[in-house]
Design a protein around this nucleic acid. Structure first.
Lengths: 341, 341
DNA sequence: CCATTGATTGACAGCGCTGTCATTCAATGA
DNA sequence: TCATTGAATGACAGCGCTGTCAATCAATGG
């Protein structure tokens, strides 16, 4: 950059001129060489190479061509969970030549709404969103999007278009059933910033509903107003044990990060797992399974969710408007029988 | 979607008409309400709201307006390392209203080149790339990009424009120095698919160069032709110990995933760390530090790299063409004195 | 030999917006 | 009072490409 104004990039019309064909023929040759004669295709490609031509998809998309961009809105990247989902999305999008355009909502509905607007203003081919208490304006935007929209993570919702995920209510319920069956009696819960993380709350609801149906209940609940982390879980368990009138015999944590923290507290305090205290988490993270005593938790198939979501978008794009109406894909969860509960 | 053709979205000219102003005034009111009278701004905003107008940035960018998209090319998302980098990028881009457009090269130079073309064809405001043996065509593309380009992860390179990272050669050298100082004599190395992961190779080069300068050398080297993983590291160490004529007293692994696998092998075989065998890794992942005996490793400041890279792009964009020429930002690494070496 | 067919190619118009420059007009000071 | 200034607004043109439909032309069969 010598300070001069940037030299204009070569355009399609220049390529066409050199190749001695019309602009539209050059366009076709470059996009799908099978739609023109072999000779024509070669001439055009040579001209493009000679000029260092680089397609301008801005113009292409504006003129009505397809976009290969897909909006992706996730609440956070601080935690491996959504990185896994993103990986799953990439797995399928990359192969199809699509690119995620990323926005992080930070669990903030207002920010999420702004992101939806922002990403939609690029007229993407589709949108994948892990919703965070979406505003009604957000839902209205998505409903009128005019392209496929997939809401991911949770299937306990009324999707605007499609959704892919698991039943968090069901996951909480299943864990409650497992713990009841194991004979635990004094249940406690330790959670993180649950106002923002709606899905953790849904799990808790499923958990307590099942306890109550079995004539049991939570004897202690601690929710901490901060993002989930190992440290938060460790401190949380310390606090709960300190403050509880009667010690619980099992603690359900809002997720594996928190639960691993709980395990660490037990290790450092010589509380034996699961005899003296049992611990359960959610997600099935690798770290939980790599512990000396593997964590009892619920596997949440995060990568799978991403893959299925990408697949749903691509399928819909291929089918055009003849596609089936709103659908919900449940990838299912699995109870991981570790050694901590 | 009733099967009819998608209804046209409201356009700026419709907004302008309703507001009773010219198109360009409406455009200005919507982009920067301070550039028009308060009253005008209100009228336009009301008209836009009434119509459900959604800005079309495709048209805007084509007409010469700025883009808020930034191409981001990473080799993989399978591993927390690049998820961390992406988080760092997001931290700064999100606040500035920029969005990463993601491409995953899978450590494949050809694929990387295709991605560069693909992302550049959207005329982004900048590009961040963790290079994977970039082809000369790739470098040429980047050199003529006309927007800021940051190559990340490694500063031991000749950057096309800017670069942000650490010296992997230096990191390998530093670990060698540390291990020599500790008195280890029989050094071994276990690595993963090093043909593709060039940076791991650079660390190894720094490591061996330093050993040799001190009159030492690697007594055993095992490189496995697969992506790095805990399992690969575990099996690798088992294989190395089985095949080696003389057992090493310290093993340098290509990264923490691999090294943690090595630690697991030692645990299951009752090999005491670090007396019987010492282990060192690279990255400073949380899991390594959460082990019963924390891993000796090199902290690589991944989130910081992302943040600095985003900052460099944003700064350059603000400064316009008057910006300083090519620069290299070294965020530095830190030796993590764990208990395994 | 001529009508018919399908494959190639091209003309046209316009996607929706913004940079650039010119115009308008009220406010200001000599 | 009139020239001067700066803010607000507008006219114009064009960014680079692709969908649609029409035109062309060689190959085919009756």
């Amino acid at each position: 950059m010598q300070g001069g104004k940037p030299p204009r990039k070569p355009t399609l019309s220049q390529v066409a001129q050199i190749a001695g064909v019309s602009e539209i023929t050059a366009s076709r040759a470059l996009r799908d060489s099978a739609s023109v004669t072999q000779g024509t295709a070669r001439k055009v490609q040579e001209a493009a190479a000679q000029l260092g031509y680089l397609r301008n998809r801005l113009a292409g998309a504006l003129a009505g061509g397809p976009s290969n961009q897909v909006g992706v809105i996730l609440p956070s990247l601080a935690n491996i969970v959504f990185a896994d989902v993103l990986k799953g999305l990439e797995d399928h999008f990359e192969d199809a030549g699509f690119h995620p355009v990323l926005g992080i909502s930070n669990y903030d509905p207002q920010r999420e709404e702004r992101l939806i607007r922002d990403l939609m203003s690029w007229r993407p081919a589709g949108l994948v969103i892990a919703p965070s208490n979406s505003t009604s304006a957000s839902r209205k935007l998505l409903a009128g999007a005019g392209f496929p929209v997939v809401e991911i993570m949770d299937v306990d919702i009324d999707p605007v278009d499609m959704c892919v995920g698991i039943s968090h209510h069901g996951a909480g319920a299943e864990m409650a059933r497992h713990l009841i069956e194991r004979g635990y009696k004094r249940f406690a819960y330790i959670g993180h910033d649950i106002v923002r993380d709606q899905r953790a709350l849904t799990r808790l609801n499923g958990f307590t509903a099942t306890l109550e149906a079995a004539g049991q209940s939570l004897s202690a609940t601690l929710t901490l107003d901060a993002p989930s982390s190992v440290t938060l879980g460790r401190n949380g368990l310390a606090q709960l044990l300190r403050e509880a009138d009667q010690a619980p015999d099992v603690v359900y944590f809002s997720n594996d990060d928190m639960a691993v923290g709980g395990v660490f507290h037990c290790m450092s305090e010589n509380i034996s797992l699961p005899d003296q205290l049992a611990i359960a988490g959610f997600n099935g993270l690798e770290i939980g399974q790599a512990l000396p005593v593997p964590l009892t938790t619920t596997g949440s198939n995060r990568v799978r969710i991403g893959q299925k979501a990408a697949g749903a978008i691509l399928q819909r794009l291929k089918d055009g408007n003849t596609a089936p109406a709103a659908q919900s894909i449940d990838v299912g969860f699995t109870l991981v029988h570790g050694g901590t509960a």
